[in-house]
């Protein structure tokens, strides 16, 4: 085995496993942060989360189209990034409307979390209907701007390798936006008075009331932040792949799995969980045949695909990891709320 083979193998893995997993993981981490914050403050598992993500992404797409029709584009960046802040505001307002008309009733009644969870199923239906009604159930691509940062062919020519490395601009954008979002979220939660009061409310509601923390204010901020996170996650995912309501709905299980694996209610846990699920999904469904062909001598080369699970079972991986965590460490990696 010469060095080129090794480099080729590494490039191959970076191209098909590491980079995609990093960007998918960042998207999932943002979505899971949203889920976990809702869980921590409002104390229920929000089944409408995935369709809420669809809703946010849909609003972004609509704003993008509007901007494009005005002749405003992001240049080499996707126009959706300009549309994003507007979409976040609209999505947050919509969420607050739903909160006022639906959730707040049960919150005031101090209903059990499981009742709120069922209520969120109802909201899920309605969001699904709205999204499908407005933008339809089909695949939408809304990416514009520069597509590649590093192109496979150029990379091959430049380094004289037989494997190419592609870095899509959406992957870099995802990473940068996700880092900005996470850093500002953690700064907010750890350093600002409002953020601390959110954590305090999540930790001990009665004592927060006794300390004069206004619960409705905390709930409002929570919906706004969670809307911002989920919309951003949805837009990044949609830019990277494409937007389709049903595909988004299928992200519900990975989100829950990531939240529980990380420790539900814990923001750091959500980030860790997001990456764990994304990396497992991609590493376990990748066919390593070519990788081993590079690395192993000819007589040992594998005949099959060398794939642990077929991509048909991608979300089964979320589930399997979820089950393992529930058996081995039900509190999650970072200790979350268990009762």
């Amino acid at each position: 085995m010469d060095n080129f083979e090794l480099v080729n193998a590494l490039v191959l893995i970076s191209n098909f496993v590491l980079i995609p997993a990093l960007s998918y993981g960042s998207q999932l981490a943002l979505a899971t942060l949203s889920l976990t914050i809702i869980y921590g403050v409002l104390r229920f598992s929000n089944f409408a989360q995935a369709d809420w993500m669809s809703f946010g992404t849909m609003t972004t797409i609509l704003f993008t189209w509007y901007l494009q029709s005005l002749g405003i584009t992001g240049g080499f960046l996707p126009t959706a990034l300009i549309a994003l802040p507007f979409a976040i505001i609209l999505t947050a307002l919509f969420c607050l409307l739903i909160d006022r008309s639906v959730y707040s009733f049960y919150r005031k009644k101090k209903s059990q979390p499981i009742v709120l969870m069922i209520v969120s199923v109802g909201v899920m239906f309605i969001l699904q209907a709205i999204v499908r009604f407005i933008i339809g159930p089909n695949d939408r691509k809304f990416f514009d701007g520069e597509k590649y940062i590093v192109h496979a062919l150029e990379f091959k020519d430049y380094f004289g390798l037989s494997e190419g490395l592609t870095i899509k601009s959406t992957q870099l954008i995802t990473l940068i936006v996700a880092i900005i979002a996470m850093v500002s979220l953690f700064y907010f939660l750890q350093r600002t008075k409002m953020g601390k009061s959110m954590r305090a409310y999540s930790n001990n509601e009665d004592l927060a009331l006794l300390s004069g923390i206004n619960p409705e204010r905390v709930v409002l901020i929570t919906w706004v932040i969670a809307s911002a996170l989920i919309t951003t996650a949805g837009v990044l995912y949609g830019l990277d792949k494409s937007f389709k309501p049903f595909t988004y709905f299928n992200l519900l299980l990975p989100m829950f799995a990531a939240a529980i694996v990380g420790g539900i209610g814990s923001p750091i846990g959500a980030v860790i969980g997001g990456y764990v699920i994304a990396f497992s999904e991609i590493t376990l469904t990748y066919a390593y045949k070519k990788f081993f062909i590079y690395l192993l001598p000819e007589n040992l080369e594998p005949s099959g695909l060398v794939q642990v699970l077929s991509t048909d079972y991608k979300f089964a991986i979320s589930f399997i990891i979820l089950v393992i965590v529930l058996i081995v460490r039900p509190t999650g990696i970072v200790k979350g709320k268990i009762i």
């Binding site: 008075k193 601390k196 009061s197 954590r199 305090a200 999540s202 930790n203 001990n204 009665d206 004592l207 927060a208 006794l210 300390s211 004069g212 923390i213």
Partner: peptide, 24 residues
């Protein structure tokens, strides 16, 4: 008021507990 149980923010630091006490 200091309740009998659940009277601290267990997931916050001591100083943050004090800050929350002075929230108003």
């Amino acid at each position: 008021f200091v309740p009998q149980s659940m009277n601290i923010f267990s997931e916050l630091t001591v100083e943050e507990n004090l800050e929350m006490g002075g929230f108003l």
